[in-house]
Simulated assay, not measured.
Amino acid sequence: MRIAKVLLAAGQSSRFNGCKLIANVGNNKSMIARAVEVLQQLDASPVYIVSGAWHSEITQALKHCNNIEIIHNLHWRQGLGKSIALAANHLKHSGDWDGILFMLADQVELETCDIQLLVTRFQKTPTRWCANYGKRLGVPAIFPYDDFDLLTTLTTDKGAQHLLRGSGDIVNSILINQASTDIDTVEQLKRYASKIGT
């Protein structure tokens, strides 16, 4: 079963006052490079990165990475939904995929083993799967091929939230507390760095 791995990284990082995705998150590794590595360790398929506001910076930060494809979202200001739609449309026409896995580049506490939990469950039951943060559902999430057309229509800043939280379709979830941590500000990054001892 083939699952496309998509890293969503098109946002402006407005609360960070700069490109947070090139910030060091330990081991002299940028946030975006760490996220790519987490997904690469799942399997040998490529990692698709949807860039946007900081396309040049992300491209530079990943210049030494192999087996990746950067999809430039020129309309990133339209929100996360546009990035998801762009990726879904690209993958719909570029391979025999059974599903799409979406992850946010700033989910710095996620490890490959967390993503593997979702993949394993999806392989057994190929429906929508996502992380349960304890209070809500969200990414990382996997959508089956049957959702590809629907994903290509997304336009809102809320991404695919309504497909995970508000639809009448079956959505399976796994408790992944690490998914609740993301970095939006310099202060949050400092707290994270202090926590991991960098």
Rank of each mutant, 00 (worst) to 15 (best):
D169Y: 14
S45W: 09
S167M: 01
N27K: 14
K135V: 15
R121Y: 13
L7H: 01
L91C: 07
R2W: 05
V50I: 08
S30W: 03
S56L: 12
L110A: 07
D43Q: 00
L137V: 06
L151E: 01
G197N: 11
V171M: 05
G81N: 06
T127M: 07
A10R: 00
L39M: 14
Q161W: 12
N172C: 13
A85Q: 03
V108R: 13
Q178A: 14
A44C: 13
T156V: 08
Q178N: 14
Q107F: 00
L150S: 13
R128V: 11
L163P: 02
R165S: 08
L91N: 04
A35E: 00
S14M: 10
I196H: 05
T59Y: 09
G99T: 04
F102Q: 03
K195Y: 04
K158T: 14
F148S: 05
S180Q: 09
S83G: 09
N28K: 10
A141D: 01
I84D: 00
Q60S: 13
D146R: 12
F16A: 06
Y133L: 08
Q40H: 12
L8H: 00
V186E: 10
G159S: 08
G197W: 02
T112H: 03
E69Q: 12
L74Y: 13
P144S: 05
W76Q: 09
I71L: 13
V108E: 07
Y192H: 10
D96K: 15
T185M: 08
E187W: 09
D114M: 06
A44G: 14
A131H: 02
K195M: 05
T153I: 03
K135E: 13
I174D: 00
E57M: 14
Q161S: 15
Y48S: 04
Q60I: 14
S56Q: 12
G95C: 03
L21N: 08
Q178C: 11
S30L: 01
Q78E: 15
A141S: 09
G166F: 13
Y145L: 15
G95N: 05
I68Y: 06
I174Q: 01
Q123S: 11
A23P: 01
Q107Y: 03
R128I: 13
W76A: 09
F102C: 05
I71R: 00
T120P: 07
E37V: 02
H93P: 06
I174Y: 01
T59F: 10
Q178W: 10
G166H: 11
A193D: 13
A141Y: 06
R191V: 12
